[in-house]
Nucleic acid binder design. Structure first.
Lengths: 349, 349
DNA sequence: CTGAAAGCGCTAACAG
DNA sequence: CTGTTAGCGCTTTCAG
C-alpha cells in the first residue's frame, strides 16, 4: 500500500502539490472547479487529508493541550472534584478546536521524559506537589503552562482560591459554635507514603500546596482562640482512602475524650466521614459536627456544611488561558462558606 | 530566542547531529564520555530533548491513542459506566507509555475533519451509532481502531458482551416472577432527538447497537411467554435524562393498569427510577420491581438486581488491543445476572 | 563508535 | 489563481 500523499494526488491530477494542499486547507485559494477535481481524486485514492503530524511540524502548532495527572489516570477518574475540573478544561479547549491529551505521570522520575514526548502546545498541571519533575520538564520545553490548585509558580499563570483563608473561615465557623476538640482529616501533604497523624514539622515540609495551606488556615483559626497546635489532631488519609478515613474516625471516637467536630479537607473525605458516622449510629450534628471542602454536587443532598469553590469554572479558565488570550487572573478566585446541616453546637459532655 | 535543535548542540560540541540524536535516543551507540559531554551542553543550552513532533513525523509513531466520544466531553465525564471504561483504557495504555487523547465529536459532520486532525496512532470508539461518520474517517486514515459496545465492524476488533442474551436473561428473571405488565426504559436508540414511546418500526431502524440489542433481548423473552410486542411499553429517555425517567415512571404508574415491573436498560436509569419510586412512596419490590444493567458501584448499595459486565476490563482490553499485540477476542465477553433485592413477585391487583 | 546523505509530508512566501 | 523554492527537526540507512 504505497502511502498516498499530497504528491500522489498532485501527480494524478496534474497540478502542483501546493494546489492540492490549498484545496484542503485554503478552499478560497483556487477555483471551485479545480478544487472539486482534486477532492474527487483524493477521495478515489483514499486520501484522508493532510497528515496532522507533518502539518504540525511545519506549522508549529499541534492543536492539543496536555493535562498532567499524577498517579494513574484511574485516580483522576474517580475523584469528582478532579472530574469537574477536567470537564471545565475540556469545555474551554473544545471551543478552540483543541483536544485534550491526558498525560499520566508515573511515580518515578520517568515523568520528565513523558512530558518531553507529549505532542501538545501547552500543559495544565493539576494538584501537583511543589518541585515535581514534570514541572521542570515543561519549563525546559518552554511550553505554556497553567497550574490549577498547585503548585504556584512565578512563571506560569495560576488558577485557585485562597485555600488558607477558606480553611480559616470554615474552622472559625466550627469554633464559634463552641467546639474545641477537633479532628482534622487531610489528604496527602507530602509526596510519600506516610499516612496517619501529621506532626507539625511534617507540615513545615509539606509539598502539596492545597493541603498545606488548608491546614495552615485551620491552625490560624485554632490559634486565634487560644488552642495549642498540639491540641488539634491532624490525620493524613493519603489519597482520600475510604478505609483510612473510617479507621481514623472510629479510633478517635473511641478515645476517652473524643472530638466533637471533624473538619475534613475535602467533601469526598467528609462524605465518607458521614457514612462512617451513620454506620456507627453517631448523630450529626448532635454528637459530632462535620465540615467538608469543595461543595461537590453530592454535598448539598448530604446537607454538608462546606466551602464552595468553582471547580468547573477553574477548569474552564485554565483551558482558556492556554487556548485564547484572556488575561491571566491577578487574584485568587473567590470561595464561599456554605452553611448547611452538619454543624451544630457541641454535645454536652 | 533562537530555537535550540540537535544541530545547535552538534555545532557547539563539535560533533555531528547524529551523535547528539543518539545521545538521547540510543545511549549505547556512543562512548559514555561523549554522551556525557553532549548531555551537559544540551542541558546548558536548555535543550529539552528531541522534538516529539519531528520525531513522530520521522518515526511514524505518536505515542497517543484517541478516544472518540460523542456529545460533549462533559457527558462522558458524568456517566459512571463511561468513566469506568475510560479508566480501564487509561490504565492499559499508560503501561505502554502512551497517552490518551480525548476526541469529542460534535453533532454535525465536522467530526470527520476532527478525526483527520487528531495526532494519534489509533482510536477506540465508544458506544457510537452505526454509520457514524467518524468511523469512516478512521477507516480512511487506515489507523487501527477498536470499538467498544458498538458498532460492530468487520474490519476492527470489537469489545463487548452479548447484549441481547443478557437482556433476555434479566427479562426472563422478571417474567419468571410472574410479571406481565412491563415498562422498559431505554437510552437513545437512534441518533436523533426523539424521546418517549418507541414504536416497533423505530426499533427496526435503531442505530445504537447496545440499546437495540438489549431491546431485542427483552422482546425475545416477552414473546417467549406469549406476550405481544404491543403489550410491552418501551420508553426512550434520550441521554439517560433524569427528568424523562421521572416523568415516564410517574405517567405510567398513574395509568389504570400500571406496570408491575420496570426494566431499565442501564443502572443509571434504574437508580433514577428507584429514586422516583421512593419519592412517590411506591414500595420496591412490593409494588414495583426494578432491574438495571451494568452493575455500577452504586448498584450494590441500592440492592439493584442487574446484569454485571466488566466495564474496567473492557476498557483495559481495548487499550491493550491498541498498544500491545494481544490477540483480539474471538468471542463476546461474559456477563452475569446479579440477583439482589429489587425484584419480587408482582403485587396482587 | 561516528558521520554524510536522504528524506518523513507538509506549507509559508513569493514569483508567475 | 497556480507553481517553485526552501525548509520544519528528526532518524534510518550505510559507509568510514
Amino acid at each position: 500500500v504505497g502511502k498516498v500523499t499530497l504528491q500522489t494526488i498532485a501527480d494524478e491530477v496534474g497540478v502542483s502539490r501546493m494546489s492540492v494542499s490549498n484545496a484542503f486547507s485554503k478552499p478560497d485559494q483556487l477555483s471551485t472547479e479545480l478544487r472539486a477535481r482534486i477532492l474527487e481524486v483524493a477521495d478515489r485514492l483514499g486520501y484522508a487529508g493532510p497528515d496532522p503530524v507533518a502539518r504540525s511540524l511545519r506549522g508549529g502548532r499541534v492543536g492539543a493541550v496536555g493535562v498532567l495527572v499524577t498517579e494513574t489516570l484511574g485516580y483522576a477518574f474517580k475523584d469528582p472534584y478532579a472530574l469537574a475540573l477536567l470537564a471545565g478544561i475540556a469545555e474551554a479547549v473544545g471551543e478552540s478546536d483543541t483536544s485534550l491529551l491526558l498525560v499520566p505521570l508515573p511515580p518515578g522520575s520517568r515523568s520528565a521524559s513523558i512530558v518531553q514526548q507529549a505532542v501538545v502546545d501547552g500543559f495544565v498541571a493539576f494538584i501537583l506537589p511543589d518541585n515535581h519533575p514534570a514541572i521542570d520538564a515543561v519549563a525546559t520545553r518552554e511550553l505554556p503552562l497553567v497550574t490549577v490548585d498547585g503548585p504556584r509558580l512565578d512563571w506560569a499563570p495560576f488558577v485557585g482560591i485562597d485555600e488558607r483563608l477558606a480553611a480559616q473561615d470554615i474552622t472559625d465557623h466550627v469554633l464559634l459554635q463552641g467546639h474545641r476538640r477537633l479532628l482534622v482529616l487531610t489528604f496527602r501533604v507530602i509526596d510519600d507514603d506516610h499516612v496517619g497523624v501529621v506532626a507539625p514539622q511534617r507540615l513545615d515540609h509539606a509539598t502539596y500546596r492545597v493541603s498545606r495551606e488548608r491546614l495552615r488556615g485551620v491552625l490560624d483559626a485554632t490559634r486565634a482562640v487560644g488552642l495549642d497546635d498540639g491540641e488539634v489532631t491532624i490525620h493524613d488519609v493519603g489519597d482520600q482512602r475510604a478505609d483510612l478515613v473510617r479507621r481514623a474516625v472510629r479510633d478517635e471516637l473511641a478515645r476517652p475524650d473524643p472530638p466533637t467536630a471533624i473538619i475534613a479537607l475535602s467533601d469526598r473525605i467528609a462524605l465518607e466521614v458521614l457514612a462512617t458516622l451513620a454506620d456507627a449510629g453517631a448523630a450529626v450534628p448532635g454528637q459530632v459536627s462535620v465540615t467538608g471542602f469543595d461543595d461537590l454536587e453530592q454535598a448539598a443532598p448530604a446537607g454538608l456544611t462546606t466551602i464552595r469553590q468553582p471547580a468547573a469554572d477553574k477548569g474552564r479558565l485554565a483551558g482558556q488561558l492556554l487556548t485564547t488570550d484572556v488575561a491571566p487572573p491577578t487574584d485568587l478566585l473567590p470561595h464561599r462558606l456554605v452553611l448547611r446541616a452538619t454543624v451544630g453546637p457541641p454535645h454536652q459532655a
